[in-house]
Design a protein around this nucleic acid. Structure first.
Lengths: 221, 221, 221, 221
DNA sequence: AATGAATGAGTATTCATTCAT
DNA sequence: TATGAATGAATACTCATTCAT
């Protein structure tokens, strides 16, 4: 019975979270009333407050979810890619972009609403975002140590990658003219890894550096 | 007399704009009331509505100002740098970062409030942002044509640079631990141009590629 | 079995009543949620509604309890005091004050919440309050008829006594600086009976009219 | 112009205060919405918040007004009555009762809402209430010193008088059956002063001690 | 008998905007 | 021009009450 109840509660939580993410992602958190979220989720306003103490906490939960998903998918991709730092970094970046793509609107929400979240919420968000960088930083360092990458500032390099992943959400209105997700990832990979890999090893990764997937409209070059 | 009146109006406008930017930049546009702006600017609420039709327009004016400044400083820097595409691009990126730094809070505001601005405001903002890319795209194209740069997608490459300039505002809480503006610019220049310049020409730009200014704390590698 | 069940129900009722009185007495009825009462009483919200139809009824029950206790203790004290009207009145007043003291917070609640109780509740409360006066009015009348008391309006005189008993709860924040319950009762008795007893009979009640118990701080004179 | 504006503001304040007192006095503060007060006062909700920061402050203002009026009328009456402590006390009590009568509903409000007012509000209210006692305490002390009054605890005696004045509001539902204000005052005066004046001086104040105004219905004995 | 999840009506408060002066 | 008093729509949040289990 306890399990049944917990399961029910979990279901409700997800219901609300999904509804809120859908609505807030498009219009921004302020523009969406709790009533609207309740309606969309098919529950009552009161119940939302049972599960999330207030609107801020709900927004926080949505944004945390994105970072949580990143925190799952990126390390997994890096590990799956094996020892090669180039392949690992490429896989990690791809996974990051794909996860952002899945939560495109929620990812934008993070930038819109962070100030609203209060000091605690902001700290948590920052802490989690920095945490998502870890596996990528590791890959960059490995690459540098292995002589595969130019000796750049590993953390800065990684944050650049993270920004480019976020950019897929933030500047989607621009990129979608020329790229779909696949094209975006391959082109960015070519640009960034192309610059990062030391010249003498570039020939080893032809697939990464010559994006086969052409931009889907007229686009680049 | 007409001139005096216009000058007066202009002064008021700037007063209000500065006050609004200061307040909204820190707390977000929603958190700042028109009354608060009026108080900060030393004028009455009614007068703000004389100069800016409504709050949205005021926010728009603030964000447009940033892009206007970029639209001034970046081409100027590119032109000043002369024919060399590498130097031109570096100068343009530096100018972009410096301008963002001058309006750090307002730059963040752009990301926070764009959805609030209504379709018209958003379009204008997007149009202007794309316009700011033009001189940089030109430099990248020149570099590629001159055989100085790897043949990457010029527009994507440029937007990456723009994102990194914005990142100085967006992720300032993170970067300020390790970099001041100067260090940020030189390190990013090293990373990006280092990747972009074809290997055989890299030796020509030692100053750009070995950032002399070390990160101001321990910093990465 | 029926008895056991009834006893259980009775226990629950008292549990809830005590919890509600404790909570509401301090913070007022509105400030206390049914959930809080349920928690304090160690039962579920639903169960409270089984025993008391709604919140109003619960408040009514608390306030009625005070008057019920008064209705028990005062006549008993009056009767116990015997034929002497002076002693009877003094004993009745003392009992009234002592009962109020036992329910100090609940007594205040009566004044706070009576308007909330709806017409029916208010009527019942008024009816009961008037009823508590009866034995005291009787004592006053007896005293007047016996030539012990000045010929005052008996009902008004009695209500004054009742007010002074309530005042121990209502103005406790003030009186507690100078009096404990004992001192309060003896001083008030001295003032009121001292005025009420006809001059020529005062000498017969030295103990009542010279309060031995001094105010516990500087007090008197 | 400044005066005109201030006068206008003052008018508004009184408008709102009167409306709120009228409404809250009858139904209690919680039962009255700010909208209802605004409607009754003929102003907008927003304006109420300009003059009174929040609902609590409005309630406080209402209750303070009562005590302010008491603080004006009672000392004036005492002074006007001259040197005779008996007449002074009688005049002060009458003034107190009359002022309470003018604000009967607001006076009840004090008892209902004090807990709601927050620590600060409560303290202020208590401070002011105690202050209203001062002139009466003075009269009692003078009377005792002059050998006119029995040597009772002056402060307790005074608070009894204050309670009886409040009782006219608190128990109006009861007293109105038998008394109008005039009758209430004269009867209470007879009871209290009759008890307080030393026997040998009672004959000097026949008017005070034999209430000519009979209770307006049958009345008690 | 007992639970507590779910409901949704009700309200204080804020603030962009207007307009008489 | 310039003011700021006045407006009133909009919304987060609470909590008494119900009812399926």
């Amino acid at each position: 019975m306890r399990t049944a109840r917990a399961a029910r509660a979990d279901l409700r939580t997800r219901q609300v979270l999904r509804a809120a993410a859908r609505l807030m992602g498009r219009e921004g958190a302020d523009a969406v009333s709790m009533q609207a979220i309740a309606d969309e989720a098919g529950v009552s306003v009161g119940l939302i407050y049972k599960y999330f103490g207030n609107k801020q906490d709900l927004v926080l939960a949505i944004t945390v979810q994105v970072l949580d998903d990143v925190a799952m998918s990126v390390p997994a991709a890096v590990d799956r890619a094996g020892d090669d730092a180039v392949l690992a970094l490429a896989a990690g970046f791809r996974a990051y972009c794909e996860t952002i793509d899945e939560h495109r609107h929620a990812a934008v929400l993070t930038y819109r609403e962070s100030k609203t979240l209060g000091a605690d919420g902001q700290s948590e968000l920052k802490r989690r975002e920095v945490a998502t960088m870890k596996p990528l930083v590791g890959a960059v360092r490995r690459g540098i140590d292995a002589g595969l990458f130019t000796a750049v500032d590993a953390e800065l390099m990684t944050y650049d990658l993270v920004m480019l992943a976020h950019a897929w959400a933030l500047k989607h209105w621009y990129f979608e003219r020329s790229f779909d997700l696949e094209a975006y990832v391959t082109h960015q990979t070519a640009i960034v890894l192309g610059g990062l890999i030391v010249p003498e090893r570039r020939a080893d990764y032809p697939a990464l550096l010559r994006p086969s997937a052409a931009p889907h409209t007229t686009g680049g070059r």
